[in-house]
Amino acid sequence: MAMRSIVARWSWALLGVLLVLGLVIGSGVRLGGRPPTTAQRISQLDHLIGCPSCADLSVAESNASTAVAIRQFVAKEVRAGKSDTAIEKAVESSYGAGVILRPPATGLGFLVWVLPGALVAAAAVVLVGVFGRRRRRGRSGGPVVSDEDRELVEAVLRR
């Protein structure tokens, strides 16, 4: 029994190591903090800017003439060494703030980013609180049931 549990523990540890290994290889982390390439930046910006003349799509996904013009502008500016923020600002100054598909993290837009997380956190706190109270109550009250007891009962129930 003890042997088995040791084997199990080691096998889980091995699993963990392999998982981390796989994720590190696969995430393609830029170890030297290499900045994204020009092509990556252009693609990111293209996915961020909405096509002004088509519903829901980014300029990366559309071949409407406005989208093509914006893509050309973005490529030109990135190659000219402009920052992402500057390029976003330039597109906004022509088409308005609504052209950026990602809501801003400032002003009212802040709420749309924070509310879901806050709500989940609050719900999680409530749930944890409920479990914590139960467990404490369980300890002071009724009989203490150990894992072994449970195993025994389950084994009996299985027959």
């Binding site: 909405g50 980014s58 703030a97 609504g98 052209v99 598909l101 002003g107 009212l108």
Partner: peptide
């Protein structure tokens, strides 16, 4: 509330 336009799209 603010009479501003903003888009919540795929990136969000």
């Amino acid at each position: 509330l603010d009479n501003r336009s903003l888009t919540v799209g795929r990136p969000y």
